[in-house]
């Protein structure tokens, strides 16, 4: 049995009066990739944005139920959101590098959290860029603006930036939807490597991607978890009719 890192129990979420997540109960194992799939508007992005409380930014958003990270409810009143987000990193749909140099992008997080020594920062930047398979491409242009990189490079830079604060969990919110197939393949390879050290949760539109990178898959529909299990089982022998319909492309 795998050790559980993140667990949601009867999680409900409303945007104003729209009931966007309904009784979501899921257990996501440590150092595994869990894919969250489902048609547009099914609540999959909403769900992972609960884990690092990014939904706090949205006005009129209300959450009930529990979302446990290492056994503690992240919605407890005494949870420090800043340190929660430091431990649960996030890579977004569209690459969002900061308008500064490649180096400063990666050093941004460590500097926020108090790392000042340039030797230490140099080391973190190099290690993070190596772990995100970008070092060989940017080692000579660390002082160039990050906005000059290609889309795929920018997304790997965003991954490096996340790794630099040394999180336990990385949330990927459709990280390849704005990328070409070659950049997508690089990100997928990277996820397969990163899972040795991090718990990964990835939202994806792309069923083949879910099948390629994940150990577990959750299928969402209209805010509910329809089916959750080992990826192999979900894709080869789904228990529910709607899961099978979605996976075989009958709707979506």
């Amino acid at each position: 049995m795998d050790e559980i890192e993140i667990e949601s129990r009867s999680l409900n979420l409303w945007y104003e009066s729209v009931h966007a997540l309904k009784n979501v109960t899921l257990s996501m194992p440590k150092k595994k990739v869990t894919a969250v799939i489902g048609p547009s508007g099914c609540g999959k992005s909403t769900f992972i944005r609960c884990i690092n409380r990014m939904n706090d930014l949205i006005k009129g958003c209300r959450v009930e139920g529990e979302l446990l990270f290492e056994g503690r409810n992240v919605y407890d009143r005494d949870i420090d959101v800043v340190s929660l987000r430091k431990r649960i990193g996030m890579v977004f749909q569209k690459p969002n590098p900061f308008p500064m140099s490649v180096y400063d992008n990666v050093a941004y997080g460590p500097r926020l959290h108090g790392t000042r020594s340039s030797g230490e920062l140099d080391k973190i930047v190099e290690e993070s860029l190596k772990s995100s398979a970008l070092w060989n491409e940017v080692a000579d242009v660390l002082n160039r603006s990050a906005l000059d990189l290609s889309g795929g490079q920018q997304q790997r830079l965003c991954i490096a930036r996340t790794l630099a604060v040394n999180p336990d969990v990385i949330l990927f919110d459709e990280p390849c939807s704005a990328l070409d197939p070659i950049s997508t393949a690089k990100i997928e390879d990277l996820i397969n490597t990163l899972v040795h050290d991090y718990t990964i949760i990835i939202v994806t539109h792309n069923m083949q991607q879910a099948a390629r990178v994940s150990d577990f898959t959750a299928f969402f529909l209209l805010g509910e978890v329809i089916e959750f299990g080992k990826t192999k089982q979900i894709f080869e022998m789904p228990e529910k009719k709607s899961t099978e319909d979605y996976i075989t492309g009958r709707f979506g």
Partner: peptide, 9 residues
């Protein structure tokens, strides 16, 4: 969002 997700205030 990118900044907040890194634990920035």
């Amino acid at each position: 969002e990118g900044s907040l997700a890194l634990g920035a205030t």
